[in-house]
C-alpha cells in the first residue's frame, strides 16, 4: 500500500498532463517538458550517487521535472533544463540538519523568475474553457491527497485562499470572482496538490501543516496586494523554509 501511495502523485500529474495535452494542446511542445523531466531525473541520479552512493527512487524527481515542464513557459529550451537542474541541485545544497528546506520546483521557479524574467513566465491561463476538466482534476487530486494523508493541507489552503480573496475584495474593491479566479486555473491544481503537500518540505504535525498552509495563503495575499503575478510561488518560498527551520528546531532543539 505504501509503495502504491508513493506512485499515486506521479500517476496523477502524468494523467493531468496527458489528458490536458491531448484535449487542449496545453504545452508549447512535449519536447520541452520531456527535457525538464529528463534533466531532473538525470540530476537526481548523479547527485544521489555522488552523495549517497545509491540509486535513488526517481518518483520525486519525476514530479519535479513534470511540474517544471508544465509550470514554466518559455519559447527557449534551456530554461526548462536549467530550472530542473536548479530544482534538484537545491535539494542537495540547501539543507539544514539533513532536511531540505524548499520544495525544489518551487524554489527553482522563483529563482528563475528573479534571475531570468525575460526568458520565462509561469503558467497563468486556463486549460480549455469547460468546467468539467477542472472538476475531474480537483476530485482526482482530492482523492489522491486523501489517500496519501495530505488532503488537510490542500483543504486548509483552499479555504484560506477563498476567505482571503474576500478580504482582498474588501481592500481592492475588485469583484470577488476576479479575486477567486486564479484558483480555478491549472497552475493552482499543481500548486495545491503537489507543491504545498510535498512530504519532504512540510512540517511533521498535522496541525502544523494546516498552520503552514494558512500562512502560505496569507503571504500570498500580501504578494497579491503588491500586484505580484507569481504570488503563490513566492509565498511558499518565503513561508516554507521558515516553517521547516522551526520544525527542525522543535524536533532537535539546540
Amino acid at each position: 500500500m505504501k509503495l502504491e501511495n508513493r506512485y499515486l502523485p506521479p500517476l496523477l500529474i502524468t494523467a493531468i498532463l496527458l489528458v490536458s495535452q491531448v484535449s487542449f494542446g496545453v504545452l508549447e511542445s512535449f519536447s520541452r517538458t520531456l527535457l525538464a523531466i529528463a534533466t531532473a531525473m538525470l540530476c537526481e541520479l548523479l547527485l544521489a550517487r555522488l552523495f549517497y552512493h545509491k540509486w535513488p527512487v526517481l518518483a520525486s524527481a519525476y514530479i519535479t521535472g513534470i511540474s517544471v515542464g508544465i509550470l514554466i513557459r518559455s519559447p527557449e529550451y534551456w530554461p526548462f533544463a536549467l530550472t530542473s537542474a536548479i530544482a534538484i541541485t537545491s535539494k542537495y545544497v540547501i539543507r539544514w540538519r539533513g532536511r531540505h528546506l524548499w520544495n525544489p520546483s518551487n524554489f527553482a521557479i522563483c529563482a528563475m523568475l528573479l534571475i531570468a524574467p525575460e526568458y520565462i513566465a509561469t503558467l497563468s491561463i486556463q486549460w480549455g474553457n469547460a468546467i468539467w476538466p477542472m472538476l475531474v482534476v480537483w476530485v482526482l487530486g482530492a482523492v489522491i491527497t486523501w489517500r496519501v494523508k495530505r488532503f488537510h493541507i490542500t483543504a486548509t489552503y483552499v479555504a484560506s485562499f477563498i476567505a482571503l480573496a474576500f478580504v482582498r475584495t474588501l481592500i481592492t474593491g475588485h469583484p470577488f470572482l476576479a479575486e477567486v479566479a486564479p484558483i480555478t486555473g491549472p497552475m493552482y491544481q499543481l500548486f495545491i496538490f503537489f507543491m504545498i503537500t510535498d512530504p519532504k518540505t512540510t512540517v511533521r504535525s498535522v496541525r502544523g501543516q494546516c498552520v503552514v498552509a494558512f500562512f502560505v495563503a496569507v503571504a500570498e495575499m500580501l504578494f497579491r496586494l503588491a500586484h505580484n503575478v507569481d504570488a503563490p510561488y513566492y509565498a511558499l518560498t518565503c513561508v516554507g523554509p521558515v516553517a521547516m527551520l522551526l520544525d527542525v528546531k522543535v524536533e532537535r532543539p539546540g
Binding site: 491561463i125 469547460a130 470572482l177 476576479a178 479575486e179 480555478t184
Partner: peptide
C-alpha cells in the same frame, strides 16, 4: 492575469 487564468464563468 487574474481574470485571464479564471474559469469561463469568470
Amino acid at each position: 492575469s487574474k481574470v485571464a487564468g479564471g474559469n469561463k464563468a469568470i
